[in-house]
């Protein structure tokens, strides 16, 4: 048996979907309680369970050769990867939202935005030629307009139900966010044969 390919998976919501998807393709694995490293049944894969936003760091340093994560984390990290396979599950969109009665026309000077995605937000608005002031938050971003920290937020929106519950609405989609299989470019160049085979195996029908 050759050495297994290394892959990082993000903790949380996306993990369950990846695990289910892999099962339909005949790849079975589970993590023992509190363990963060596991092998699949056939020992073709060595799997690391990491925090979503740290995933690009592990892959960029080649600690994990591959990873599965959303474009949001990839863009936010600033690293460059091979994006080998897009998945249909886990897609969201990065959107600008705010209180229902807010209007862009009323804003003088830079637009204040609260977000966890500072890089993408800044890049998007600067490309549009719009000056922005960004307040970095690490979670529960919906609170910002409600409590008056910032009139607008940029956040991932899947169904929009959290926004609705807080009396917020989406003004604009900034990016469609897809989930990708990514690889460290140098790792891919050494292991391309095994990785291509792996891609064929997990490709959605």
């Amino acid at each position: 048996m050759s050495t297994p390919l290394t892959i990082a998976l993000p903790k949380g919501r996306l993990y369950d979907r990846v695990q289910k998807h892999f099962e339909t393709k005949g790849i079975f694995f589970e993590f023992e309680k509190r363990k963060l490293v596991a092998y699949d049944k056939e020992e073709n894969l060595k799997i690391y369970l990491v925090k979503n936003s740290d995933l690009p760091t592990y892959v960029a340093h080649g600690i994990a050769g591959m990873g599965i994560c959303g474009e949001d984390v990839i863009l936010e990290s600033g690293h460059h990867f091979h994006k080998l396979l897009p998945f249909s599950f886990g897609g969201t969109s990065l959107s600008l939202a705010g209180l229902k009665d807010f209007s862009m026309d009323k804003v003088d000077g830079p637009l204040t935005i609260a977000t966890s995605y500072t890089e993408m937000t800044r890049r998007y608005f600067h490309e549009q030629g719009i000056p922005v002031k960004i307040i970095k938050l690490n979670g529960s971003v919906e609170l910002a307009p409600v409590l008056g920290l910032a009139p607008c937020i940029v956040d991932l929106v899947e169904t929009g139900s959290t926004l609705k519950a807080n009396n917020l609405e989406v003004f604009q989609k900034l990016h469609e966010i897809k989930v990708h299989l990514i690889a460290n470019p140098a790792y891919y160049k050494i292991h391309y044969k095994a990785i291509n085979k792996f891609i064929q195996q997990i490709r959605e029908d």
Binding site: H61, G62, N184, A186, K189, I190
Partner: peptide
């Protein structure tokens, strides 16, 4: 050309 080695994260 680029050269790659197992264990190095970049060329």
């Amino acid at each position: 050309f680029n050269a790659y080695t197992e264990g190095a994260g970049t060329a």
